[in-house]
C-alpha cells in the first residue's frame, strides 16, 4: 500500500478522477432517454426488433417508402452484432416488403432516431426537416 501511494500521489489520482467525471458529465448531451409511442406501425416494428433475444431497446420511424430502425443490444452480445442486424433486417423486410429497411445497432443512429421520435411526438417538425434528419441518420448507419 505504501508503495502504491508513493507511485501514485493522491493529488494525481484526484486529478484523473476529476477529469473522468468532467468527461462523464459532458456526455449527457440533449438526447432523450426513452422512446415515445408514435403510432401502431412504429410500435409493431419496435416490438418486432425487441423480440430478438439480446436487444434491450429499439426505436423505429416510418417514412413514406422507408423504415428506419435502430436497436441497443446487451453488452455481452456485441460480438454477434452482424447476425443480430441480419435477423432484425429480415424480420422487418418480411413484415414490410414494400418498404426500404434501414436498420443499425450504431449508438449515434439510435440516439438521433430517438431524438427525432421525441420531436415528432412533442414538437411540430416539417416534412423537409424530417427528410433531412433521416438522410443524416442513414449516413450514420452506413458508418
Amino acid at each position: 500500500m505504501l508503495v502504491t501511494m508513493k507511485v501514485f500521489p493522491l493529488r494525481r489520482i484526484l486529478f484523473c478522477f476529476m477529469f473522468l467525471f468532467l468527461l462523464v458529465s459532458c456526455q449527457a448531451g440533449d438526447y432523450p432517454k426513452k422512446t415515445v409511442t408514435l403510432n401502431e406501425e412504429t410500435v409493431q416494428a419496435e416490438t418486432l426488433i425487441q423480440n430478438i433475444d439480446p436487444v434491450t431497446s429499439a426505436v423505429a420511424i416510418h417514412n413514406e417508402k422507408e423504415l428506419y430502425a435502430a436497436a441497443e443490444v446487451e453488452h455481452m452480445a456485441r460480438l454477434r452484432l452482424e447476425s443480430i442486424r441480419k435477423e432484425a433486417h429480415e424480420r422487418l423486410t418480411d413484415q414490410w416488403p414494400e418498404k426500404t429497411i434501414f436498420f443499425s445497432t450504431d449508438k449515434k443512429a439510435l440516439l438521433e432516431l430517438r431524438k427525432l421520435n421525441n420531436d415528432l411526438a412533442f414538437k411540430s417538425v416539417s416534412k423537409k426537416e424530417i427528410d433531412k434528419r433521416l438522410s443524416k441518420i442513414e449516413e450514420y448507419m452506413k458508418g
Binding site: L23, C26, Q27, G29, Y31, D106, K107, K108, M141, G143
Partner: peptide
Amino acid sequence: AFGQLVQDFFVYNFDFNEQTA
C-alpha cells in the same frame, strides 16, 4: 474504459457515429 468514455463523449457531443468516433 477511459477510451470508451472518450468515444462516447465524441458520439454524444459531435457529428461522429461509433465507427468514425
